[in-house]
Amino acid sequence: MTSTTLTGSPAKKAPGFIARIGGQNLSLIGALVVVLALFGSLNGNYLSWNNIQVIGQAVTITGLLAVVQTVVIICGGLDISVGSQAGLASVVSAMAFTSAGSNALAGMGAAVAVGLLVGVVNGVVIVYGRVNPTIATLAGLAAYKGVAQLLSDGRAQGYVLNDSIFIFLARGKIAGLPVMIWILLLVAAAVHVMLKYTDIGRNIYALGGNDTAARLAGISINKYLVSVYGLIGMVAAVAGILLTARTGSGQPVSGSEGLELKAITAAALGGCALKGGKGGIGGTLLAVALLGALENGLTGQNINAFWQNVAQGLLLVVAVVIQQRRSGERAIGLPA
């Protein structure tokens, strides 16, 4: 009797456990374990606590952008300009810091204000200009990068590592964990709570799932979309501030170029349906960790960085193919 109960219990509990975690997340966990085991066997220092922290710090900026990219994709939108927004915020934070007499809070405040402004501009162009989000933010990618280069004359600006606040952001630790990782976890937790446990989150999922039904339900679609893009701009500004802290100066392009592709790849790998209405922060964070572990492992094996770009592109394609297969949608160019 006891034996039957013990053997039967896991079988009953397993489906609920899998449902709570999600098949997509279980796949990511499995892939992450494989990557860690593979590179851990090739490099004795790969699984050391120091290297785990290095991976965590390396993915913080990408992680912040991936978290808000997840929100906008759930809405049914996209933001290709997040990397340029982070670069612009980085330049503004360093230049404002210098202009205000080495005042870190002034630099950070100016960066967040600019981030909010460019995010709202994206939202207004998309909503009121009736421009496709991909086209609007593609234009933003070029425009914000250009503004950052004009402001900085194409060069790194300022030097912030003589300031205790920037030093703390770049090198500080709380409870043995780097501050940068704490910032990512706090932002991710806040966005997760918003999406899962508030009316705002439920309305965001509704917008991406069926915008017509959402409109009929009385949801102000325009207000939500502009607000979401404003949120992206603010979090991108935080990423830009961390970029400034890590590099010691405002970076108009270096360090921010390519971040948009990494953020979209992480969101897609994490289970976001690119047509909207589906996704979550947990899956996105797992995908960010997987990308970071893979990149660190390849770098440790002295594999050319160009191959890392190839791997990243392939992962994005794989993620989209899996989504298409699961959704049952007809492939373009093939008979129904």
Results as ranks from 00 to 15, higher is better:
Ala213Phe: 13
Leu28Arg: 06
Met194Asn: 01
Asn210Pro: 07
Ala305Gly: 12
Lys173Trp: 08
Gly8Met: 06
Ala37Asn: 12
Ala14Tyr: 09
Val235Trp: 09
Val68Pro: 06
Thr5Ser: 11
Ile167Trp: 10
Ser90Thr: 11
Ala311Asn: 01
Ile200Asn: 07
Gly56Trp: 03
Ala110Gly: 10
Gly328Ser: 00
Asn50Tyr: 14
Asn122Ala: 14
Gly209Glu: 08
Val320Pro: 01
Ala214Tyr: 06
Gly276Thr: 07
Ala37Lys: 09
Gly201Lys: 03
Gly129Leu: 09
Ala100Met: 11
Ala206Met: 08
Arg155Asn: 15
Gly300Pro: 12
Ile183Tyr: 04
Gly76Cys: 02
Gly40Asn: 11
Val91Leu: 11
Ala336Gln: 12
Ser48Trp: 07
Ala189His: 03
Glu260Lys: 02
Asn309Cys: 10
Leu169Lys: 11
Val67Tyr: 06
Ala106Lys: 12
Asp199Trp: 10
Gly8Tyr: 01
Ile165Pro: 05
Leu141Val: 01
Tyr197Leu: 11
Gly154Trp: 05
Met108Cys: 15
Tyr144Pro: 01
Gly107Asp: 12
Ala336Trp: 01
Gly77Pro: 03
Asn302Ala: 15
Leu116Gly: 10
Ile135Asp: 05
Val59Gln: 11
Met95Trp: 10
Gly176Ala: 15
Ile18Asp: 03
Ile200Cys: 10
Lys13Glu: 10
Ser227Gln: 14
Ala136Trp: 04
Trp307Ile: 15
Ala11Gly: 03
Ala139Asp: 00
Ser81Pro: 04
Gly109Trp: 14
Lys145Ile: 02
Gly279Thr: 04
Leu26Gln: 04
Arg20Gln: 10
Ala113Lys: 09
Ile232Trp: 09
Lys223Tyr: 14
Glu260Ser: 03
Pro10Asp: 03
Arg330Val: 05
Ala237Ile: 08
Ser256Met: 02
Leu315Glu: 02
Ser27Tyr: 12
Ala58Cys: 10
Gly23Gln: 10
Phe97Asn: 11
Val33His: 09
Leu274Lys: 04
Leu261Cys: 01
Ala37Cys: 14
Asn50Met: 13
Ile61Glu: 14
Gly240Ile: 05
Ala113Leu: 15
Gln312Asp: 06
Arg330Ala: 05
Leu242Arg: 03
Thr98Lys: 14
Phe168Asp: 10
Thr134Glu: 06
Val147Ser: 03
Ala66Phe: 10
Val310Met: 12
Gly101Trp: 14
Gln251Asn: 07
Ala31Ser: 13
Leu28Thr: 03
Leu116Cys: 13
Thr5Ile: 12
Ala213Cys: 11
Thr7Cys: 00
Asn45His: 15
Leu315Arg: 05
Gly208Leu: 05
Ile200Phe: 13
Ser41Asn: 14
Gln149Cys: 03
Pro133Ser: 09
Glu329Phe: 01
Leu334Ile: 05
Ala58Asn: 15
Tyr46Trp: 09
Ile73Ser: 05
Ala319Gly: 00
Leu26Arg: 06
Thr62Phe: 07
Ala110Val: 14
Gly23Pro: 04
Leu161Ala: 13
Val67Cys: 08
Ile264Pro: 02
Cys272Gln: 00
Gly283His: 02
Val59Tyr: 06
